[in-house]
């Protein structure tokens, strides 16, 4: 089977995982998770250089930090299907005594997680710290991070964005999930942020758009290009244009499914649009 087809099958299975996880506990955040399924699949399978197994320090491998921790379902699914832990454990999402907390945490020792996130706006600073440690350690691997677009309303981001360019943290690729939605509605309604590209450029970053943020080929090509932009004295920002709820027609183009789980009937309908490929957990 051609590689792209394999990745497409994996993406479909990840969507099923997300939907089944949030349905089971009638909570969680399917919208943003679905919108970033292709990004996570591309990142963990085609982009990042990863070591076998997991250790916190991650020396000699690329690192990833999820800042918008509420899209934990897609993160957990892709980590499990990349071998960090058993896919059966996805069954425990948000349940008592689980390592798969509502928002990701290091507290329960889940392999693949290096920082707690959920309270928004903190991940970029952490990623910059980890990238700085890599420089001190003469480690040439990269640090990746993902942030919601609404999350950019948190002021700490702009402290971090200012710092990274001023201090030439050029071994970092920060991706912004530009789905234009947040809990209370469209970002342009809640708090219009103007041109995010212009803002990052004004703060001294290299900026790259991936217009088709739900197209695996476009994401892989875009992130590979972003890699070539590192090491030149500037941090790199990827603007990933996604559709919230992608892959489930009635969840797309709306903020309604930001933090709402499907009921039995809706789940059935959503799964029918994403037939089983690699096997459900």
């Amino acid at each position: 089977m051609p590689r792209l087809e394999e990745l497409q099958d994996l993406t479909t299975q990840v969507r099923r995982d997300i939907l089944r996880m949030v349905h089971k506990v009638n909570s969680g955040h399917p919208g943003g998770s679905l919108g970033c399924a292709e990004f996570f699949v591309a990142l963990y399978n085609e982009i990042m250089e990863l070591n076998e197994g997991f250790d916190m320090d991650g020396k000699g491998e690329d690192l990833f930090f999820l800042s918008n921790g509420h899209i934990s379902p897609v993160f957990y699914s892709v980590l499990a299907r990349s071998g960090y832990f058993s896919v059966d454990e996805l069954n425990t999402f948000r349940l008592i005594n689980s390592r798969l907390q509502g928002h990701p945490t290091t507290h329960e020792g889940l392999p693949g997680i290096r920082i707690a996130s959920g309270s928004l706006g903190q991940g970029l600073s952490v990623a910059i710290g980890a990238a700085t440690a890599k420089k001190l350690n003469k480690d040439s691997n990269l640090v990746y991070s993902l942030h919601g677009d609404g999350e950019l309303q948190e002021g700490q981001n702009w402290e971090a964005i200012m710092y990274a360019s001023a201090k030439k943290v050029d071994n970092i690729i920060a991706t912004i999930d530009l789905n234009g939605q947040q809990i209370d509605g469209a970002t342009d309604t809640v708090l219009p942020m103007g041109s995010i590209r212009a803002k990052f450029e004004a703060f001294g970053w290299e900026v790259l758009d991936i217009e088709e943020g739900n197209n695996l080929e476009a994401i892989i090509a875009g992130l590979k290009k972003a890699k070539t932009m590192t090491g030149n004295g500037k941090p790199v920002c990827v603007l990933l244009h996604t559709v919230m709820g992608n892959g489930v027609d009635f969840m797309m183009h709306t903020h309604a499914w930001h933090g709402k789980a499907p009921n039995d009937e809706q789940l059935e309908k959503a799964l029918a649009q994403n037939p089983e490929t690699l096997g459900d957990y």
């Binding site: 991940g123 970029l124 952490v126 710290g129 440690a133 001190l136 480690d139 402290e159």
Partner: peptide, 28 residues
């Protein structure tokens, strides 16, 4: 000098960067 980081007047960012520096074995 190579082990010191002037963050500027941005304490929130400083705490996050410190947390990140520990990943890789530093003691901030």
């Amino acid at each position: 000098p190579e082990r010191f980081f002037q963050i500027g007047i941005a304490e929130a960012n400083m705490m996050g960067i410190a947390a990140g520096l520990t990943i890789g074995g530093k003691i901030p």
